[in-house]
Computed example of a mutant assay.
Amino acid sequence: MRKLLTLFIILSVSIIARAQSDTLSITLENIKYPYPVGFLPVKIEGQDLRMAYMDVKPANPNGKTVMLFHGKNFGGYYWTDVIRAMTNKGYRVVVPDQLGFGKSSKAFIHYSFHQLARINKTLLDSLGIQKITLMGHSMGGMLATRFTLMYPDKVEKLLLEDPIGLEDYRTFVPYNSADDDYKAELKTSFASVKKYYENSYFTTWKPEYDYLVKIGAGVTQSADFPRYAKVAALTFEMIYEQPVCYEFGLIKVSTVLFTGKEDKTIVGKALLSDEEKAKHGQYKILGPETAKKIPGCKLIEFDNCGHIPHIEAKEQFLKALLANI
Rank of each mutant, 00 (worst) to 15 (best):
F8A: 15
T27L: 08
Y53T: 00
A17N: 10
R2W: 02
L4G: 00
F74Y: 15
E45I: 03
V37E: 03
I44F: 06
I9L: 13
F8H: 05
R50T: 01
T65V: 06
K64N: 14
Y33K: 01
A19P: 01
Y35P: 03
I9Y: 05
R84T: 12
S21E: 10
T80F: 09
F69D: 07
L28V: 04
K43T: 06
T87D: 06
Q20N: 10
L7E: 04
R92Q: 04
S14C: 14
G46V: 02
Y77S: 07
D48V: 02
M54Q: 14
I9K: 05
A59T: 13
R50H: 02
S25K: 10
G90V: 01
V82A: 12
S14E: 02
T23A: 09
M54C: 08
G90F: 06
T27A: 09
G90L: 05
V42F: 11
A59L: 15
K32V: 12
Q20D: 07
I26W: 04
D22G: 00
P58R: 12
I9F: 08
I44W: 13
T65I: 01
I83N: 08
F39H: 06
A52L: 08
L24R: 14
L5P: 00
I44C: 02
T80Y: 14
T87P: 07
V66D: 11
G71F: 10
D48P: 03
H70S: 11
N60M: 10
V82F: 09
L28D: 01
N88L: 13
E45W: 07
E29D: 11
R92D: 03
A17C: 14
I16F: 15
P41S: 08
L28Q: 08
K72W: 15
E29P: 02
R50Y: 01
I16E: 09
P36S: 06
F74I: 07
K72C: 03
S12C: 12
S25M: 08
V13N: 05
H70N: 12
L11H: 07
Y35A: 11
I26N: 06
Y77F: 13
W79A: 07
I26H: 01
S25L: 05
Y91E: 01
F8Y: 09
R50L: 00
I44T: 03
I16S: 09
L4H: 05
R92A: 00
G38Q: 14
F74V: 05
I31N: 04
G38L: 04
F69I: 05
L40Q: 09
I83P: 10
A17K: 11
M51E: 03
F74A: 13
F69N: 10
P34N: 01
M51I: 03
V42H: 04
R84K: 14
R2Q: 09
P41L: 10
F8G: 08
K89Q: 12
T27H: 07
G75M: 02
T65W: 13
N62Q: 13
E45P: 02
I16R: 12
G38S: 15
K89A: 08
W79S: 10
P36I: 03
R92K: 01
T87A: 08
V66G: 08
G76M: 10
N60P: 00
K57V: 07
F39V: 00
L68K: 13
P61A: 10
L11N: 03
G75K: 05
T65M: 13
I15A: 15
Q20M: 12
Y53C: 00
P58H: 08
T6H: 08
V56Q: 05
